[in-house]
Amino acid sequence: MAERVTNKAIVSSRIFSINYVTYPTNHSVMQHSDPVQKGRYYKLNFVLVQPKAGGVFKCSNCIINLFNRVYLFRPDKYEHSVSKIESGKRVLLSFAFNI
């Protein structure tokens, strides 16, 4: 059986959330945006574990990209994706703000 993405909510509210997310080998995230009902949506992702191969984050317009490890972006406005994880896993600490 294939491994699944695990998404553990640490904090969750309408305006702010923190999630610990693990993406296994062979997982990918297709290009998409995350619409919100109202306000502006921001995500600040910290890549805690990089895959050995693959799992590259792409965003059409990142506000901040530090060393391909820390990303601040607007998932509501700009399409983003993650390429297929060929080897290893990708672990994120994700902070989401809807203001």
Rank of each mutant, 00 (worst) to 15 (best):
V49Y: 07
F57M: 06
S33I: 11
R14I: 03
S60I: 08
Y41I: 09
S12Q: 15
I63G: 03
E79T: 11
C62V: 13
L93D: 05
L44G: 00
V91F: 04
I15C: 11
I15L: 15
V21Q: 01
T6M: 02
E86D: 11
H27E: 12
S28W: 09
H32M: 09
G54K: 09
I63T: 14
S28G: 04
G39F: 04
S33H: 13
K38R: 01
S28P: 00
V36N: 02
N68A: 14
P35K: 07
Q50Y: 06
F73H: 03
T25S: 12
N19S: 06
T25V: 13
Q37Y: 11
K38E: 09
D76I: 09
P75K: 07
C62E: 15
V82G: 00
G55V: 03
G55K: 04
A9F: 12
V5Y: 10
V5K: 13
M30D: 12
I85K: 00
F57K: 04
N19C: 07
T22L: 03
V47L: 12
T22N: 06
Y71F: 15
L48Y: 05
H27P: 02
F46D: 03
V5S: 07
P24A: 05
S81Y: 00
E3D: 14
F46A: 05
V91H: 06
E79V: 06
H80W: 03
N98P: 02
I15W: 13
F95C: 02
Q50N: 11
K38Y: 06
R90A: 01
S87G: 07
N98V: 07
V21K: 03
H32Q: 14
S12T: 09
S12N: 14
H80Q: 06
P24W: 01
R90I: 01
Y71D: 02
V49R: 15
S12V: 09
A9L: 14
K43N: 00
P75E: 02
N45D: 04
V11N: 05
L72N: 10
T6F: 02
N65R: 10
Y78S: 05
Q31H: 08
P35Q: 10
R90F: 02
P24G: 06
I85D: 00
F16L: 15
I10S: 10
H32D: 08
V70L: 14
L48N: 07
R4Y: 10
R14G: 08
T6P: 02
K8Q: 13
R74V: 01
D76M: 05
K89R: 11
K52F: 04
V36M: 03
F16N: 12
R74Y: 05
F16A: 13
V70S: 12
D76R: 00
A53R: 15
P75A: 05
V47K: 08
C62W: 15
V49D: 10
Y78R: 04
